[in-house]
């Protein structure tokens, strides 16, 4: 199964998570801010809203404040100001109740190097007062199986490759049923095959009803598996919306290639197109809804251009991809490899 062919659409997956707080947003923050003692503002008044049941891509370049935000969400780092709620519980008062229903992976895997993978999970499970000791061994093996580490379970953690370490961290998250998964760069260090497997796993977990908040610097990851996205840029949340809405908001432009661009401009202007730009022999303009499909659509422009005697060499309708949208939001590119 390839993940990219089965994106989780927000509307087609109406799984409310369990519990009485099912209709609350999974994560909500109000002006959450972290100013470190050095004076550096790592997170600057962000208002996150992660809807229950969504796969929320927390997107931003490295150093944009994603990890600090996640540390604040989990109570590892105290906010300088602002509040937040997890699964409807105000934090930090509701930490004990909320965190038990949350599986979190913060900033890369971390385990005891001289313990085996299984012994490390046993320790995590032992620390969890919600864990039933009678089912511990079975749950640990099940989690190891799910991430494909069962065969290497007896190996010491220090002998694990980075990919195996990342999987072990994911297995730690899967020891208990979870309503919310907060995953910080879960595909970091994985090879393409491992990356695909982890994305498939995340999609499966989301289909089973868990809300997933996934931090990443990879736009492709967001495009493949997320239903919602929040974009971080230098500590600020510069955009937050369902992915479908962001795509819809992206405005289509017509692009006409001609040796006589000024003639093409006249024709486009006659049809009421706006923001007409000329760059050498290329003319672009916002298509908008002035040439609606019922009037013949953009195709009508071609015949009009030809009738007006414009020598047309090329014609196209260009819809900016998400990367263009994010670049316009942050003024920076995203690493889209992987």
């Amino acid at each position: 199964m390839t993940v990219s062919s089965t994106p989780v659409a927000p509307a087609s997956q109406p799984h409310p998570p369990g519990g009485r707080h099912g209709h609350d947003p999974a994560v909500r923050t109000f002006g959450l801010t972290k100013r470190f003692r050095s004076g550096q503002v790592a997170v600057d008044g962000i208002d996150l809203d992660v809807p229950a049941g969504s796969v929320y891509g927390f997107l931003g370049p490295n150093g944009s404040g994603k990890t600090t935000t996640i540390r604040m969400l989990l109570g590892l780092v105290g906010p300088t100001s602002g509040q937040h709620e997890l699964l409807g519980h105000p934090m930090p008062a509701g930490a004990g109740t909320a965190l038990a229903r949350i599986g979190a992976l913060v900033e890369g895997p971390a385990f005891h190097p001289y313990l085996s993978g299984r012994a490390n999970l046993r320790r995590l499970d032992a620390a969890d007062r919600h864990a039933d000791p009678r089912t511990s061994a079975a749950r640990i093996d099940e989690a190891l199986e799910r991430v494909g580490l069962l065969a290497a379970a007896q190996k010491r953690y220090r002998a694990y490759s980075l990919g195996m370490r990342q999987r072990l961290a994911l297995a730690g998250v899967l020891l208990q049923p979870r309503d919310l998964l907060i995953l910080d760069e879960p595909t970091n260090g994985l090879d393409p095959q491992g990356t695909r497997e982890v994305r498939t796993l995340i999609t499966e977990l989301a289909r089973d009803g868990a809300t997933v908040m996934l931090s990443t610097h990879l736009l492709s990851e967001v495009e493949q598996i997320c239903t919602h996205v929040g974009v971080m840029h230098v500590g600020r949340l510069v955009a937050q919306a369902p992915l479908t809405q962001l795509r819809a908001d992206a405005t289509a432009r017509v692009r006409v290639e001609s040796r006589q661009p000024s003639l093409a401009v006249e024709t486009l202007r006659r049809f009421g197109l706006t923001e007409i730009l000329v760059e050498g022999e290329i003319v672009t303009a916002v298509l908008g809804d002035v040439v609606a499909d019922r009037d013949g659509g953009p195709e009508k422009l071609i015949s009009a251009l030809v009738e007006d005697g414009v020598p047309v060499r090329g014609f196209g309708v260009v819809t900016p991809d998400l990367e263009d949208v994010f670049v316009s939001l942050t003024g920076e590119g995203f690493d889209v490899s992987g």
Partner: peptide, 11 residues
């Protein structure tokens, strides 16, 4: 080791 954050997140 970084395991402290794992333990605190258990919670």
């Amino acid at each position: 080791l970084g395991t402290l954050r794992n333990l605190l997140a258990v919670p």
